[in-house]
Design a protein around this nucleic acid. Structure first.
Lengths: 348, 348
DNA sequence: TTGAAAGCGGTACCAT
DNA sequence: ATGGTACCGCTTTCAA
């Protein structure tokens, strides 16, 4: 029966109308009617007719053209999800959850990566706008303010995920309680007896990192360990061997433990530690940031700050849809991190 | 200046035409003109006028509505990429390459995961069709034939990536030379002195796995090792502890090495081996399938069959675009695998 | 309960 | 080199 469709032009609403012997307006009505809370369709159509139309739809294999629908209705039911890198395990996990949520609610998702690059960000955002996205969930990359301004200027709702951009009243936010994350991470190391705790961070202009760096400084000072403060920046996009250099120096000056400030940097540090043949936690202890499946194959079980990808996905999607459909005000959701204990931060 | 746009309706081609004092037809022309090989625009428009139009575009911040364009032109410049799981490292790497290629050529990509589930596959495909994709790159999941038939029935070009579906003349294919992959993998183990080589595979109804299983059997027989043939199937979606069970039995019957048939199964095996405290390669040698960043954090360097994600992405995208734009016939590209040697298959 | 027709934002053809 | 206008497939009044 599929062969009937072969070589035929795509079937349109007109074809369905003709087949069912009704007007195209009626077909549209029937196809867009939903069952209301009272159990009946929300459109006044005779059951008979509706059935005839549905039969025609099935017979012809009609698939509505969303583009056509959207230009008239003004709705595209499409949102963009822009992370720094869809191929990163943490963000791709979030993406997957969002994808599934969207599916269930009839939204389409456009995924894109900013590559932490403002030019690329601007390009992908433009493309999303051309496609008519109704909202965006974005993991802000450095120096993206101009682009975010553009989005706001077009009145497109935006939700910042996992990283904040200051002075942006119109954006929703789903963030981690960074102060708590810092406390959890550093206390774990401190309580295990480590004192020479160094920080490792990506050298990126995003507020999340700044907060984490400041928090580190504050905690260390609180413990009277200002002497031991060492903040190591690694250039964004660095490979493991560059991190090895950093760790070698740290080790030379007696570093015992690492406070890691992001998932990316955690993985790089793990590789560097392995390549330097350092034993964990004896030669170098650490608490990582965010779960990664990489941990499963690592020689030592990893302690890390856990933020739920599923919750991040759920909150951001819900907030965005609320902004789109109910014109809800931008709000901020702060998630509480959790410490997962492995051997990488164990007391010696 | 952005504030000018605030609270304004989205600017359309009409506004640009008015601002520039020309007709909308001309605006469309100018915006769609490309620079030909002779260095001049391929549309006859006076430079002066063109400049004026472009200025108006910039001033108003005009962004064309692709949906509107597509319903008239019939082109959406959108393709779907459907892998088994975008959050898997191998496929997300491929996805990223395709994304970048698409960008450069003005195509938009819709990503989706089939979750190796025919029902989910059918859903994501329907949604892609509604969005008007002009072609699809798909990693075939088990029992997807009905869905692939539907796509073909609609005359939508399709390229199968990395896995084959037999009896599908209309689909393009970008595959690995499986015979060569099998030879490379098994010879490496054989040449290193391993004889009790067992196979580990996902229990999935896809031809790629069948081919690899048959190849294993053939090679083992060729070496007079039919006694040692052991094919271990692991249910799709299994966790590492289920693989541990399998490996425990294998070890008990004296298995020395594993021939791994996919990236997923490789990672599961690596985790299981680690959890069982087996030394690699002394207690258990293996050759993995496809690169994964996971290898970087593993205690042993990993030997694996390498297929280039970049090449896979390039070939499949190129083929699909050729089918879309030039009505090219479906063809098959077979990529040659390479063996990357690590210590996991070293001679003892 | 149903149909006619306007119109969404563009593109493509035909005139000029 | 430029403009007029039909038209793409659908939704949305409005009238019947």
């Amino acid at each position: 029966m599929l062969s009937l469709q072969n070589m035929m032009k795509r079937v349109t609403i007109k074809d369905v109308a003709k087949e069912a012997g009704v007007s195209i307006a009626l077909v549209s009505m029937v196809l867009n009617s939903t069952i209301g809370p009272d159990g009946k369709p929300d459109r006044p159509v005779r059951k008979e007719t509706a059935k005839r139309i549905l039969r025609a739809v099935a017979k012809l294999g009609y698939i509505p053209n969303k583009a056509a629908a959207s230009i008239r209705s003004g709705r595209t039911y499409t949102i963009a999800v822009i992370t720094s890198d869809i191929s990163s395990s943490f963000f791709s996990e979030i993406s997957k959850y969002i994808e599934n949520l969207a599916y269930d609610q009839g939204y389409n998702i456009i995924f894109a990566s900013s590559d932490e690059n403002p030019v690329k960000l601007s390009k992908v955002v433009d493309s999303a706008i051309r496609l008519g996205v109704e909202g965006m969930i974005v993991v802000p990359s450095p120096n993206g303010e101009a682009t975010f301004n553009k989005i706001s200027g077009l009145e497109i709702p935006i939700v910042f995920l996992e990283r904040d951009v200051p002075d942006f009243p119109k954006a929703g936010r789903v963030l981690l309680d960074n102060e708590e994350a810092i406390r959890l991470s550093l206390s774990e190391l401190y309580d295990s007896g480590y004192r020479k705790i160094e920080l490792l961070a990506n050298d990126m202009n995003i507020s999340t990192i700044q907060t984490r760096v400041e928090g580190y400084r504050r905690e260390m000072i609180k413990w009277g360990l200002e002497e031991n403060i060492h903040i190591n920046y690694v250039k964004n996009g660095s490979k493991a061997n560059q991190v090895e250099e950093v760790l070698r120096s740290a080790k030379n000056r007696g570093a015992e433990a690492l406070y890691l400030t992001s998932n990316t940097i955690t993985i790089l540090a793990m590789i560097a530690i392995k390549n330097l043949n350092l034993k964990v936690p004896q030669d170098m202890a650490f608490v990582g940031f965010d779960y990664s499946p990489f941990y499963e194959v690592y020689a030592t079980t990893v302690s890390y700050i856990h933020e739920s990808a599923e919750q991040l996905a759920y909150e951001s999607f819900k907030m965005l849809v609320d902004m789109i459909e109910n014109n809800a005000d931008a709000s901020t959701v702060v998630l509480t991190p959790e410490l997962i204990r492995g051997n990488s931060s164990k007391k010696l």
